[in-house]
């Protein structure tokens, strides 16, 4: 009689453990998918920005063709961004791009006719919108990374995460100075 009870208890605990493991496992999978989805959104916006740049540069060139240095810089930053692989590389390339864009917009300040150009104004809106979307995507990505990283370290998730071989995900961090430069103001 006593043996049976013990057996049932052990079986019950085992069942609970298995169920618990399964639910943690599934929730980690869901979280990972979520992070990947949010990262894809970040990449979309990086790509969108890279696509906008040739148009923007062409418009600026029409008014300020002798500012060669800025144009080369921006073209280089763009090709680095398009060639970057992985989170770390892309984050770095993106902040270089931001610095280059900031310089371009500073050049623009010296050409009042350019600022009055309607096409340029719209391109600037597109760029500002993309920057904003990028920062929203970055925020949402970082939020889900944060919750993922916390959950794989908390007990008992850490045991399951260890068995699954999950590791902490990288944040999309931006340098403070990079954040200030590319602000598109009117």
């Amino acid at each position: 009689m006593r043996k049976k009870t013990t057996l049932f208890i052990v079986l019950g605990i085992l069942l609970l453990l298995v169920l618990g493991y399964a639910s943690k496992y599934n929730s980690f999978i869901t979280l990972e998918e979520e992070i990947d989805g949010k990262w894809a959104e970040v990449e979309n916006n990086l790509q969108r920005r890279a696509d906008l740049i040739p148009n923007l540069v062409a418009t600026v060139k029409g008014y300020a063709s002798h500012e060669e240095k800025v144009f080369t810089e921006i073209a280089e930053a763009r090709s680095r961004l398009l060639g970057a692989q992985g989170v770390e590389d892309k984050v770095k390339a993106s902040s270089e791009m931001e610095t280059a864009l900031g310089r371009l917009l500073m050049v623009v300040e010296q050409y009042p006719e350019l600022k009055a150009d309607q096409r340029f104004a719209e391109l600037q809106d597109e760029l500002a919108g993309t920057e904003n979307r990028l920062s929203v995507a970055r925020l949402r990505y970082n939020e889900s990374v944060k919750s993922f990283n916390a959950r794989i370290r908390r007990f008992p998730g850490n045991i399951v995460a260890g068995m699954m071989g999950l590791e902490k995900r990288e944040y999309f961090q931006i340098k403070e100075e990079a954040r200030e430069v590319p602000k598109v103001e009117f």
């Binding site: 006593r2 009870t5 013990t6 208890i9 019950g12 605990i13 609970l16 453990l17 618990g20 639910s23 943690k24 959950r151 908390r154 007990f155 008992p156 998730g157």
Partner: peptide, 18 residues
């Protein structure tokens, strides 16, 4: 035993729900 198992049950459930 029953008390113990209930205790363990509660611990496991609460720790997994989080």
């Amino acid at each position: 035993n029953i008390k113990l198992s209930i205790f363990i049950f509660v611990i496991i459930i609460t720790s997994f729900i989080g």
